[in-house]
Design a protein around this nucleic acid. Structure first.
Length: 550
RNA sequence: GUCUCCGUAGCUCAGUGGAUAGAGCGUUUGGUUGCGGACCAAAAGGCCGUAGGUUCGAAUCCUACCGGGGACGCCA
């Protein structure tokens, strides 16, 4: 990638200048390459000379002069200049820029893919309790995780997408009880409804079940009936979660069962390991994970009734990810309400003898839902919550994804349902998609006129708006790298808007289909085709459609 | 009380130590007898919460304080 090349050129130039005695000896620091905000400063810039002033004991401008004198000539750079107070500005060659259109056309839907790493990474996201439909809050989790997975794949990683199904524990037990009550009620029995999971979906499920199997579960042992209810409810909910996820373009490679960690012996293995290392203790009838740090809290892993806690599962799960399945990197996407759990999981990873740097936990701030400014409670237990499906049916999956992706994970967001539906037509995603559709329209026009891009000479692309568009297209690779580095997929939404904006400005300035000038027509058709590819690839990374018409 | 995230234009938000702090929406004004006006251009709008510190340079890093969200369970 360009910034890396430029950085390398600078390092070589500094070394050369040092060898020639033009600069004193010092260790060369990491060289920051940035894109200047002001276009008059060129395409890339580095403040490296400013930082070197103290080591070289020279004025930054002088250092910069000495560096640029030793930068070797390369085809993609037109000129390198020094600007006060010591910036080195790099301007790309316009001929080289124009030539990149051919590169983009050749790469096609692979444009934007970079070979950053081929490591095996897992992204685990959503992983909401399987006790009800996908909520809007989980929607944010879904979009963050899914987009990040897309970008990691584009960066060369071997990506696996996983949903961790919490099919063990109190919550699913309660759901089983609730379904049992709904089932009994559907049969006219007055079984007291446990004050848990009052969602409509369990009422419906109970009715369907009653119609399917009759009253047989009223006559079996209650424990057996509950076990069946639990399993039945889980299967039903998981199936509907898959549908909800698919509705927003999210699909997983694997739905990983928490229960399986107990069934296949993983939990037993890590428990023995911790036990042998004297990492656990018994108190008040429960088993706790010791802490070597006085300030750190101890955590229960087995309750006094013998049932393991979710933390016990998490220990086994991280072992499963890193040791058994051998992921080089495991990314978790969690709501900020789980932040207290981060330290524990990192710690126990280390205790298990794994590298805690191999796990990365992305926390996103919770979404507050309001309707006409009034907060809407979000509780699966009371059945009082807004589902992702409801909102998607109102505004569409693309607008839904864009809305939740635009803000950084750190930023807490308020989503007003009334406002979101009212303003959905001005969602920026349509601006980006409009660019794509407009290009499709240009090609329809070109076909009418009998014009094609065959034989187009991209060297004819010299208009400032043409070159600006190419510059924006080339930013896709850098954006992919930035998203991986910062784990901030929201950057894509801003890039997409910049790219679309550059296209629309080009469209204003340059006519593409001009029958009296077939040469420029062909060259510009190549350009807009490359822009179409870039827009489509960007939209695809964000999990959104690229329409031909809208 | 401890931990954590946030505070940037009227609103919603970008901005991983660099040059004159940006975008969208909203407001005002203008634009194409030609490829889609879901577009383009211009203007107005800012003690970057407050106060110190670190340094050549701070919206960005550190400390304290103010204001808002979240977490501190044998729930997940």
């Amino acid at each position: 990638m360009l910034p890396n090349y430029i950085s390398q050129l600078m390092v070589e130039a500094i070394k050369k200048a040092q060898k020639k005695g033009e600069l004193p000896a010092f260790d060369i620091p990491a060289i920051v390459i940035e894109r200047p905000k002001d276009p008059s400063h060129g395409d890339y810039a580095t403040p490296v000379a400013l930082g070197l002033a103290r080591y070289a004991r020279m004025a930054p401008v002088q250092i910069a002069e000495k560096i640029i004198k030793r930068v070797k000539a390369v085809d993609f750079i037109d000129e390198i200049t020094v600007a006060h107070p010591g910036f080195i500005n790099v301007r790309l060659s316009t001929a080289w820029l124009a030539q990149q259109v051919e590169t983009i056309l050749a790469e096609g839907d692979q444009f934007g893919h970079i070979e950053l790493s081929d490591k095996k990474v897992q992204v685990e996201y959503i992983s909401a309790n399987p006790t009800g439909p996908l909520t809007v809050g989980s929607g944010r989790n879904a979009i963050l995780g899914d987009t990040l997975a897309n970008v990691l794949a584009a960066a060369g990683y071997d990506v696996q997408r996983e949903y961790y199904v919490n099919d063990v524990g109190t919550q699913v037990d309660n759901m089983g009880k609730a379904l049992y009550a709904r089932y009994a009620q559907a049969l006219g029995q007055g079984v007291p409804n446990p004050d848990e999971y009052q969602g409509y979906y369990l009422v419906e499920m109970g009715q369907v079940l009653a119609a399917d199997v009759g009253d047989q579960y009223l006559h079996v042992d209650e424990a057996d009936a509950l076990a069946f209810m639990r399993r039945y409810a889980l299967d039903g909910i998981i199936a509907s979660l898959k549908e909800d996820a698919a509705l927003i373009g999210v699909e997983f490679d694997r739905w990983f069962s928490e229960q399986s960690l107990y069934d296949d012996g993983t939990y037993g293995k890590v428990f023995n390991f911790l036990s042998q290392r004297n990492m656990i203790l018994e108190r008040d009838g429960a088993i706790w994970l010791k802490s070597d740090d006085e300030n750190d809290k101890e955590n229960v892993i087995v309750r006094s009734d013998g049932r393991p806690t979710y933390f016990a599962s998490d220990i086994a799960y991280v072992y499963n990810k890193l040791n058994i399945r051998g992921f080089d990197w495991a990314i978790y996407v969690w709501g900020a309400d789980h932040h207290g759990h981060v330290k524990r999981v990192k710690k126990v990873t280390e205790v298990l003898g794994e590298d805690p740097d191999k796990i990365e936990i992305i926390l996103y701030q919770l979404v507050t839902i309001t309707r006409d400014g009034v907060p809407v409670r979000q509780s699966k237990r009371t059945g009082d919550f807004i589902t992702a499906r409801e909102v998607v049916e109102e505004i569409g999956a693309d607008a839904f994804r864009f809305m939740l992706l635009t803000r950084s994970a750190d930023s807490q967001m308020e989503l007003d349902l009334t406002l979101a539906t009212k303003q959905s037509n001005e969602n920026p995603v349509f601006y980006v998609q409009y660019g794509h559709a407009r290009i499709a329209s240009i090609f329809r026009k070109a076909e009418e006129e009998g014009a094609t891009m065959d034989g187009g000479d991209v060297a004819l692309l010299t208009h400032p708006s043409e070159l600006d568009l190419i510059r924006q297209m080339l930013r896709l690779r850098e954006t992919v790298a930035d998203v991986v580095e910062t784990l901030g997929p929201h950057q894509l939404t801003y890039y997409a808007q910049d790219l679309a904006s550059a296209f629309h400005a080009f469209y204003r300035d340059c006519r593409v289909v001009t029958p009296e000038d077939p040469a420029i027509t062909a060259a510009r058709l190549k350009l807009v085709n490359a822009a179409k590819i870039t827009l489509a690839n960007t939209l695809r990374l964000m999990g959104m459609s690229a329409p031909e018409r809208m």
